[in-house]
Design a protein around this nucleic acid. Structure first.
Lengths: 243, 243
DNA sequence: CGGTTTTTTGATCTCTATCAACTATTGTGG
DNA sequence: CCACAATAGTTGATAGAGATCAAAAAACCG
């Protein structure tokens, strides 16, 4: 199953015709960006809707003095801002984490699809809604969880999102983030992140080696992270697979 | 100028007919909620779109062990989740900060308005988009600013948002949050928040007394907060007033 | 294989949490 | 309008999580 269709079908069931319409988005020009390159900067005026086809990217913001915060991860099948056409200045930046390829879709195509197929419009809206819910969960993460819990939570989110798109195995998945990236996502320094990661490892909860994440104790991990998957709006059947 | 119309008109210019259509939202039944009451809980299935007419509210999430994080403020004129009809489980809760009154609008009314008046649909979308941008700025706030900078930033956001809706004076505005609320919004304890607030006062930046916020040194405040108003998408003319 | 990036370690400092009063302010019923 | 209760703000002492700085070890890459 390809992550693009499933990212939409996770939200609504599609008729064959609708699925075909969604698939047609893949005809939009494909743009490749090397790893670690910023593809969209705060202040830019984005002119197309982007649909991530391959690779991982992240949203980030930075402060004048160089402090940086990753505010979200983009996985294959994710849109970068469906509502972007309405906005004239990006409030944040987006960079490739790995080499990526995205489809550059003219906003009119999105509008047309949404107009012709109300269920697809709903799916787009839900996709945006989930992105926002994720932001809120991250706010809780940064504001009220400690480093250990935060990292546990982040790993679980990655694992759950990948599994929902069919890209994870039973208890492992890709995770191309460096400790530096993880530190920028969890709001700690990389030194402290390193120590926190060792603790997760020592506790037999999670291991990360050669860009691959291994969940060693799923139950205890969800417990220490106080992970409640409802914010991801993953359907019942998918959530069921979690057990 | 009433905050409802201006909240929409901030985003797009309306024709008299469009303005009338927006005004018609105020015919929706008005619901009153006493201060400090939770009006919508995580897990609930919201059936209407709510438009805050009077008073302040906040979004929050909490952890099983009682830690709580405020993830956003709702001011008069704000919608609580236009996209709510698409969702079957709230990912967060909403509570009244002061006594509030909101309009309970059937989702069909929103849909109809959006269908009939594309510019209003755009305004709705922008409103949602700004809410999301605010979440991202808060992520930066919690992840990378220290307590002093965070609080300075929060005060500026409140001031700027109120001023954009015409509810602030030159250098002061309402601010009904207790120190406990401010602590929950900035991710620190109330004791530490108290000390941070004293420092802001001592430095001659901001004062808060009897629920009223006084900006004592706007320039230095924006500087220490590293405040960049672009995320609020406040129009050029409004931003101009900031000086 | 040599150079770069990433991970790891140790020592020390600082910011924020915690706990436990205490004071001031606000609000309410008599 | 006062009295008292409840809420909100303040203080001090101490503990702990996470930051900082500097450098070494390990992994990765062309």
């Amino acid at each position: 199953m390809n992550p693009l269709v499933s990212a939409i079908e996770r939200h609504v069931e599609l008729s064959p015709k609708e699925r075909e319409a969604v698939e047609s988005l893949r005809e939009a020009p494909l743009v490749r960006v090397p790893a670690r390159q910023t593809t969209l900067s705060e202040g830019d005026n984005p002119r197309v809707v982007r649909l991530l086809s391959q690779g991982w990217a992240y949203r980030f913001k930075d402060l004048p003095d160089g402090r940086r915060q990753i505010v979200g991860l983009l996985l294959p099948g994710d849109f970068f801002d469906l509502g972007v056409r309405l906005v004239d200045e990006m409030d944040h930046s987006i960079a490739a984490l790995t080499p990526i390829a995205y489809h550059a879709i003219p906003p009119e195509t999105i509008d047309r699809l949404a107009r012709e197929y109300p269920r697809i419009a709903d799916a787009f809206a839900r996709h945006e809604h989930v992105s926002t819910s994720i932001h809120r969960e991250w706010l809780l993460n940064l504001g009220r969880r400690n480093a250990f819990e935060r990292l546990a939570h982040l790993f679980l989110e990655i694992f759950m999102r990948l599994r929902a798109s069919g890209s994870a195995r039973e208890r492992e998945c890709d995770c191309p983030l460096t400790q530096n990236d993880l530190a920028d996502a969890t709001g700690v320094t990389s030194v402290h992140l390193n120590r926190t990661m060792q603790e997760l490892r020592r506790e037999g909860l999670v291991e990360l080696k050669s860009k691959r994440l291994f969940i060693r104790d799923y139950d205890r991990l969800t417990q220490v992270a106080m992970f409640n998957p409802n914010y991801l709006q993953i359907g019942r059947e998918t959530r069921h697979l979690a057990q």
